[in-house]
Amino acid sequence: MNRCKNIASSLLVAAIICTTMSCKEEQGTFNVEVYETSAAGNNLTRVTPFEIKDSTTVITINENITYQKITGFGGAFTESSAYLLNRLSKKNKDSIIDAYFSNRGANYSLTRTHMNSCDFSLSQYSYSPVVDDMELEHFTIQEDRDDLIPMIKDAMAASDDGFKIFASPWTAAPWMKDNNHWVGGKLLPKYYDTWALFFSKYIDAYEAEGIPIW
C-alpha cells in the first residue's frame, strides 16, 4: 500500500475501463483504435479497428426491448480522497461533493467503500487490531472517523435521490492470515467465524453512524 495523496486519487475512483480508445477524424470519418490492457496493467494489445461514419451510420435504440437492469453508476469512497477533500475550503469541498452527488451534477447512485485499509488509504490498518481477538471485542472503525465517514455523510446530505453503498475488504488483518502480512496470503480456517463476525460488526457500526450498507 502507498500513501496516496496525489491529485490523481483526489476524489472518486470510478469504474475501471478495460479498453483505451484513440480517435482521430479524417474527412467526416472517425477512425477508432482500441487497445485492451492486460490483467497486470502493463501490456496493451491492439484490437482490430473499426470505423464510424458520422454522415451515414445510424444507431437506433429500441426502448421497448430491455435486458439486464443497471443498478446504478458511481465511484468509490476512499480514505485518501476523503483526506484531500477535507483539506479544501468548505466552498470548494461543497462544490466537489455537489458535482458528484447532487441532481445538478453526476447524481451518483451506486458507490463503494473499503473495509479496513485499501491501496487508496494513508496507512495500513484494520478494524480488528488486536491479535487473536476471536470475538472482536476490540473491533473499531475509529480510523474512518476523521475523513472517510464525514465524506460519506456529506455525500448523503448532498444527494437528492440517495445512493446505495456496498463495501468490500482488500484483506483481513495480518494475524488472521497464513503469511501474517497485509499483502498476499490466505485466511486461516480457524478465523472463518471471526471473519464472518467482522462483516456483521462493520455493518452494525456503520449503521450506527447513520450510513446503511446495501
Results as ranks from 00 to 15, higher is better:
residue 87 R to H: 15
residue 75 G to Q: 03
residue 180 N to T: 04
residue 41 G to W: 06
residue 149 I to E: 04
residue 104 R to M: 01
residue 132 D to C: 05
residue 35 Y to T: 01
residue 182 W to V: 08
residue 76 A to W: 03
residue 20 T to H: 11
residue 43 N to Y: 10
residue 31 N to E: 12
residue 108 Y to Q: 01
residue 31 N to C: 05
residue 210 G to Y: 09
residue 139 F to L: 05
residue 2 N to E: 14
residue 120 F to H: 11
residue 110 L to P: 00
residue 15 A to S: 08
residue 174 P to N: 12
residue 189 P to Q: 04
residue 4 C to S: 15
residue 10 S to W: 09
residue 52 I to V: 14
residue 1 M to P: 06
residue 200 S to P: 00
residue 174 P to E: 14
residue 55 S to A: 15
residue 154 D to Y: 08
residue 103 N to R: 12
residue 77 F to C: 09
residue 63 E to C: 01
residue 25 E to L: 12
residue 77 F to H: 09
residue 19 T to E: 10
residue 18 C to N: 13
residue 123 S to L: 01
residue 130 V to L: 11
residue 19 T to R: 09
residue 128 S to G: 00
residue 74 G to F: 02
residue 182 W to E: 08
residue 66 T to K: 13
residue 140 T to Y: 06
residue 23 C to F: 01
residue 189 P to C: 06
residue 119 D to S: 13
residue 33 E to H: 05
residue 121 S to H: 06
residue 184 G to A: 10
residue 58 V to L: 13
residue 26 E to V: 14
residue 87 R to W: 02
residue 21 M to W: 04
residue 27 Q to H: 07
residue 152 I to H: 02
residue 194 T to P: 03
residue 80 S to K: 02
residue 12 L to T: 03
residue 41 G to L: 07
residue 118 C to R: 00
residue 173 A to Y: 01
residue 54 D to R: 15
residue 204 D to M: 06
residue 48 T to I: 09
residue 55 S to Q: 14
residue 139 F to Q: 03
residue 152 I to C: 04
residue 153 K to V: 04
residue 8 A to Y: 09
residue 109 S to I: 00
residue 74 G to M: 02
residue 112 R to E: 03
residue 129 P to Y: 09
residue 90 K to T: 09
residue 137 E to H: 09
residue 38 S to A: 13
residue 59 I to C: 02
residue 133 D to A: 09
residue 23 C to P: 00
residue 138 H to E: 13
residue 6 N to I: 08
residue 96 I to Q: 03
residue 131 V to C: 10
residue 177 K to I: 07
residue 64 N to T: 12
residue 158 A to Y: 03
residue 129 P to C: 13
residue 188 L to Q: 14
residue 48 T to D: 12
residue 165 I to R: 04
residue 47 V to F: 05
residue 117 S to E: 01
residue 144 D to K: 11
residue 64 N to A: 11
residue 194 T to F: 01
residue 181 H to L: 15
residue 80 S to P: 02
residue 192 Y to A: 09
residue 132 D to W: 03
residue 15 A to C: 02
residue 196 A to Y: 04
residue 9 S to T: 15
residue 121 S to C: 12
residue 178 D to A: 06
residue 25 E to G: 01
residue 171 T to S: 12
residue 72 G to D: 05
residue 152 I to Q: 01
residue 191 Y to F: 14
residue 39 A to L: 13
residue 92 N to M: 10
residue 13 V to F: 06
residue 41 G to C: 08
residue 111 T to C: 15
residue 178 D to G: 04
residue 131 V to Y: 10
residue 6 N to A: 11
residue 213 I to D: 03
residue 24 K to R: 11
residue 145 R to W: 01
residue 180 N to E: 14
residue 199 F to E: 06
residue 140 T to L: 04
residue 52 I to S: 01
residue 132 D to V: 05
residue 177 K to N: 06
residue 99 A to D: 07
residue 60 T to H: 09
residue 99 A to I: 00
residue 82 A to P: 14
residue 39 A to F: 08
residue 36 E to I: 01
